[in-house]
Structures are given as structure tokens and as C-alpha cells.
Design a protein around this nucleic acid. Structure first.
Length: 278
DNA sequence: ATTTTTGTTCGGGC
DNA sequence: CGCCCGAACAAAAA
């Protein structure tokens, strides 16, 4: 499932392979692939040259040689793929891009099994697409402020697990890295943010930064083929997971068996010994 | 056939 | 009105 490290891996792959290319043709192949708030059909960007690929949290956007951008969210299973000869064709292609640079021609596919992902033509507003306006900065953003973020967590009355998943406060963390960050910080997922000390909240944020930074170096986490990078490669961070998906397996720190509970409708994995309610 | 999975949005309740 | 919670959405694998 694409969270910040996976989306960043995709962004880096795209950045390397599409910047400088011109978008010659776009086909929308599924009725839900275009976000309803898109300024226009995606084909309106035909003729534009891609000048960069940017990201905030789990949101991606292609910068073009015109005021509009092509914004994208991978949802649960979205993928940008270059169709390679030695790989089976993608099965859930929702949009198709014909791009070229001089004599070089490429086909970029937007593939999405569960159709929660989307594409959208948008204006930039304060450096980010309009649909990204309400999304908090992610901790890798140069403008990210840790002290402000700590305060924003502290004044809410949310379970810390729910707070980490709230993209409006700090973006990029999903279910996997939320569980891993809380395990590293030794914080129980159900503790209220308003009950945590400033120091503890800081530790949770630092842990999220550390675990996502390490995951980026490993190309992200791939449990199955729902997450692969633009070249179809899996990430290798799964072997480093201490808590997520480790139900009934020993905690790497103390040996207690990892527990699974539901918090805010999402599965939460934690060590009952290392991560106490208080 | 039913359950499980997850990011985001939306509606209800307080 | 603001805040928080839970349901809904899709689709496929187990």
C-alpha cells in the first residue's frame, strides 16, 4: 500500500524517466480515473512538456510547461508503470500516456486494481495543487516545522494512531509506518495525543521520520504486487518490519508476542510490553 | 460465500 | 460550528 516511502520511490523513478518528455496523447480508460474536481479531461494536457515530478505526503504531481499540473493519488493500489517487454501486461490499466522526447517514445500506464487512485488537472495554489491544499506538510518537506506539528497534535483529542493517519496534521504516514513509528517510540496506539508529553510526541515524529527514511532507502514495502515501482520492482522494507503484520510473532526488542487490535477501524499491531497505555 | 485489506471522503452525533 | 468517529467505497485474495 503506497505510503510516503512508496510514493517517493515512484516519484524518483518518474522523475528520472519522464522529465523532459512531451505528453502526446492521453487516454482515460476507466470512468473513475479522473477526480471529479479536475479542471478538464486529462487529455487537455496533451502537448505539454513535463518539467518535474513533485510530492507532498502521498500526493504526486507532474509539473508542466504551463500553469496547470497533473496531480495524482495512488490510493491503495495505484501504479505508474513503464510497460516492459519482459513483464506481463498490467491488468488494470486506467489511463495511458504516450510520451516522447525527440525520437524517443515511451508509454506510461496508470494501473489501479482497486480504483481508489485518481488523476486530476489542477492549478497550483501556493506551490501545491488545489487538492493538496488541506494536506499537512510531510516531515521531509524543507518547510516542515516539528514544533508546530507537535502543538497541532497536542491540541487534538485523537488516539495517537488515528492522529498519525490524519493527513491534515502531518502527511505521508499510513497504517504500516504508523505502527512502526509507535513501536519505535514505545507508545500505545490508543493513547490520546492530548495525554502525551511534548517529548513523547516529538519522539513519535522522529520515529516516523526515521522509519520512513529507512524505508525509502529500501525502495518501500511490498507485500504483494499491489505496490511496485515504475519499473515493476518490489521494495525490500518488509523484512525490517517490527510490528506491522507481525501478530503473534515475538517483539524484536523484548520477545513478547505482538498484538493486533482495531483502532479507528484500522488494524493496529503493537507490543503489549514495550508499548503501555501510560 | 464471507472476511479482510486500506486512504480518503462524507455524514451523523454531540 | 468544530471536532471526532465510523461507515462507505472497490475489488480480489484467502
Amino acid at each position: 500500500m503506497p505510503e510516503l516511502p512508496e510514493v517517493e520511490t515512484v516519484r524518483r523513478g518518474l522523475s528520472q524517466l519522464v522529465v523532459g518528455y512531451r505528453i502526446n496523447a492521453v487516454q482515460e480508460l476507466h470512468p473513475r480515473v479522473r477526480k471529479s474536481s479536475s479542471l478538464s479531461p486529462i487529455s487537455a494536457i496533451e502537448g505539454a512538456r513535463i518539467t518535474g515530478v513533485n510530492r507532498r505526503g502521498k500526493y504526486l504531481w507532474f509539473e508542466l510547461d504551463r500553469p496547470q499540473v497533473l496531480a495524482a493519488h495512488l490510493g491503495m493500489s495505484g501504479q505508474f508503470l513503464f510497460q516492459l517487454k519482459d513483464r506481463p501486461p498490467a491488468k488494470h490499466v486506467r489511463a495511458l500516456f504516450q510520451i516522447s522526447k525527440g525520437p524517443l517514445k515511451k508509454e506510461l500506464v496508470f494501473n489501479d486494481q482497486r480504483t481508489f487512485g485518481w488523476l486530476s488537472v489542477e492549478e497550483l495554489d501556493d506551490g501545491a495543487p488545489t487538492s493538496v491544499a488541506g494536506i499537512g506538510l510531510d516531515p521531509f518537506d524543507p518547510l516542515f516545522g516539528k514544533n508546530v506539528t507537535v502543538k497541532n497534535y497536542a491540541r487534538r483529542h485523537l488516539k495517537i494512531k488515528t492522529a498519525l493517519l490524519s493527513q491534515g496534521i502531518m502527511s505521508g504516514v499510513g497504517n504500516i509506518y504508523a505502527d512502526e513509528a509507535l513501536w519505535r517510540a514505545k507508545v500505545h496506539p490508543e493513547v490520546l495525543t492530548s495525554d502525551l508529553s511534548v517529548k513523547k510526541i516529538e519522539l513519535v515524529i522522529d520515529s516516523a521520520i526515521a522509519v520512513m527514511g529507512e524505508a525509502i532507502l529500501q525502495g518501500g514495502t511490498s507485500f504483494d504486487d499491489l505496490y511496485i515501482d515504475v519499473n515493476g520492482e518490489s521494495g525490500f522494507f518488509e523484512q525490517s518490519l517490527a510490528a506491522y503484520g507481525q501478530t503473534d510473532r515475538p517483539c524484536p526488542r523484548c520477545g513478547s508476542l505482538i498484538k493486533r487490535i482495531v483502532v479507528g477501524g484500522r488494524s493496529s499491531h503493537y507490543c503489549p510490553r514495550c508499548q503501555r497505555t501510560r
